[in-house]
Nucleic acid binder design. Structure first.
Lengths: 154, 154
DNA sequence: TATTGTTATACTCTATAACTATA
DNA sequence: TATAGTTATAGAGTATAACAATA
């Protein structure tokens, strides 16, 4: 040993380490799949949200996704440049915009969702259903206890 | 409903979603704790690795942490500027450097490790030991099956 | 020629804050 | 004055690639 050191818990002693380890690999694998469709993970979450509830104002999306309005603005630029969504002037209050998926944007989401399904299956498909459900319930319980709200992007 | 759409699996249908959701919150909580010590998560992993095996070459660290040599170089700059580590000219092969923790760097690591312990306890402390071990084993099994190697930073 | 470490560039995300148009 | 959206700036990551020094 080169230096005398007090005992310190190793990185691998933490459950958070293992969660992050696996979670990051899953996200990267997913982002590689999305790359073939020229979409980032943040863009996927954005598109999926618009698919669910169309004609949303940027500020509402910012709240829902836990991002700043500036970040939403930049994401909107990129997605509009790819012709996946459109900005529309709002209704009565002319400060508000309305974000809507284009036809091609709407057509893309189910394909991306399938990539998400495949990715999940790749990593968890071998686990027994009960074990998967147990892990999912543990995560939901942590989210509930700590009152976690915003959707994770990274 | 504003638009007719084919059924698409929601984000929350994926176990990967919940893992990322919780994992990102855990990391952010940890990074807020580290912030009080003026250290980022990437710097923590870096310091923890040097604590374990001192006098490592940057290129070896890059391999071990799954980062590029450029990224290691930048991190080394920052940590050296904080006087937490030192670059030393190598031995026979003068291309190699040797990275070593300073006295203050070595003194800091146990304090950061305690923050990591506290963070893990905050999020998982309420779970029964058997459940914690089960999740940890599931994650390790996924890492083993998929041959995952690099340490996660984000 | 190959390798080590540095540097430059570009990209995606983060955050804060200034700015405009509108209410 | 407050709010919606844009823009600018800075920082922490990622990646690729060029480069000097050394082997």
């Amino acid at each position: 040993m080169t230096t005398q050191s007090p005992a310190v818990s190793p990185l691998e002693a933490h459950l958070g380490y293992w969660l992050r380890f696996v979670s990051n690999h899953i996200s990267h694998a997913f982002s590689r799949k999305l790359f073939a469709r020229d979409v980032t993970v943040a863009e996927w979450v954005f598109l999926r949200e618009l698919y669910e509830r169309d004609a949303v104002a940027p500020s509402e999306l910012a709240t829902r996704l836990g991002m700043t309005r500036g970040a939403i603005s930049k994401l909107t630029d990129r997605l509009a440049a790819k012709s996946l969504l459109e900005r529309t002037a709002g209704g009565n209050d002319r400060r508000y915009q309305s974000l809507t998926l284009t036809r091609s944007g709407r057509a893309l989401v189910p394909k991306l969702a399938q990539l998400a399904d495949e990715n999940d299956e790749e990593f968890f498909g071998h686990l027994p259903r009960t074990e998967r459900r147990m892990i999912e319930n543990s995560m939901k319980e942590i989210a509930r206890r700590r009152d976690l709200k915003t959707i994770p992007i990274e």
